[in-house]
């Protein structure tokens, strides 16, 4: 064996057996340091015969590279062991550092969720004021004075004769007054009812009103739209039932019940929505207000619907009392974070 081969073996053996970083450094100095074995051989090479020089030179380079690499690997091992030892006692079951986030109110979440579904179907948002005229709240919606459905008892009035809207259906009128058909809007907003406050009734509640007016809009379109919405909300396997009902401003009118395994008491029909085809008398009232015939009931038909957000949120989140919404107890709000 060439003495250099022996040198390599010795170096690698000593690197492998070095017990710690200091010992490894000593090995490095011994072989690669100034005056170390490799350096001595380099010096010695000058005195070698010319034909041996390239062989020894090549061998020396190989040895230098091999020893350097071995030291590097060994040093990395020492470092890794040291780092592992440093964190060996860390209890990884300790809770993580957290940043406290707030929560969006469950009613807003209900609104956001509903609005997102309707937007996917191509509904734009619309707005109207909470303080309304009797005309917008009742007369224009085919509920003239002394109509049995015009319940002044349940309506908050202002001293000037205006009122707090009892439903967001007022936005149907506002929207049609402002723009010609086709109309495709939803209007989220507050409504008010002069009613004793209890677990299911608040003086103020929240609705999403929907209105679609176009040529040849039919009950089938109304059904398709609301069935899609309700299945998006309550799950694809939700049973949806349309039940004939009465609202002065739609004809025919329906209430919608759903039955879904996603809901507590999933075998019960739960009423979730009122809807119907816009009554021609509503179009006629709008035309009168607009002083034109933009909403010719012979040309345009439409559907409208109203969804109670408080009620939907109570059903979906299994909230037992409507008053919880207005109390804003953080222990309540944060449950829906």
């Amino acid at each position: 064996m060439h003495p250099l081969e022996q040198l390599r073996e010795d170096a690698l053996a000593q690197i492998a057996s070095a017990p710690d970083e200091r010992a490894l450094e000593a090995v490095r100095v011994k072989f690669l340091g100034r005056g170390g074995s490799v350096a001595q051989w380099s010096d010695k090479m000058k005195s070698l015969p010319n034909e041996e020089k390239p062989v020894v030179g090549k061998l020396l380079n190989e040895i230098r590279a091999a020893v350097t690499a071995a030291i590097g690997i060994r040093a990395e091992n020492f470092r890794a062991e040291k780092e592992s030892a440093a964190v060996a006692n860390i209890d990884i079951s300790l809770p993580g550092t957290s940043h406290e986030r707030g929560a969006i109110h469950p009613l807003t979440q209900m609104l956001d969720h509903s609005i997102a579904v309707f937007r996917r179907m191509g509904f734009a948002l619309a707005e109207g004021p909470d303080i309304e005229t009797e005309w917008h709240c009742f007369d224009a919606l085919n509920t003239p004075a002394d109509h049995p459905a015009r319940n002044e008892q349940d309506t908050f009035y202002l001293p000037d004769g205006r009122l707090l809207r009892t439903h967001t259906s007022t936005v149907q009128i506002r929207t049609m007054e402002a723009a010609a058909p086709p109309i495709r809007v939803i209007a989220p907003g507050a409504a008010y009812r002069r009613d004793e406050v209890d677990a299911t009734h608040g003086a103020q509640f929240h609705q999403i009103e929907g209105l679609y007016v176009d040529e040849k809009v039919s009950v089938a379109d109304l059904k398709g739209t609301l069935e899609f919405f309700l299945r998006e909300l309550f799950g694809a396997d939700t049973a949806v039932r349309f039940r004939p009902h009465y609202f002065p401003f739609t004809e025919p009118s329906f209430e919608i019940d759903v039955k879904s395994s996603a809901l507590k008491g999933g075998e019960q029909w739960v009423e979730v929505c009122g809807c119907g085809m816009v009554h021609p008398a509503v179009f006629e009232a709008v035309n009168q207000s607009r002083r034109d015939n933009a909403y010719d009931p012979e040309k345009w038909t439409g559907f409208a619907f109203g969804l109670g957000m408080d009620r939907l949120a109570m059903i979906l989140f299994d909230i037992p009392d409507i008053r919880l919404f207005a109390q804003n107890d953080l222990r309540f709000l944060r449950q829906f974070a």
Partner: peptide
């Protein structure tokens, strides 16, 4: 007519459409 005929016999139709963003949006 539809009340007696049965509203369940009316199939749901898709009437989605393009709608630009409104000020309320």
């Amino acid at each position: 007519i539809i009340r007696a005929h049965g509203i369940e016999k009316v199939p749901g139709e898709d009437r989605s459409r393009f709608t630009p963003l409104s000020a309320a949006d």
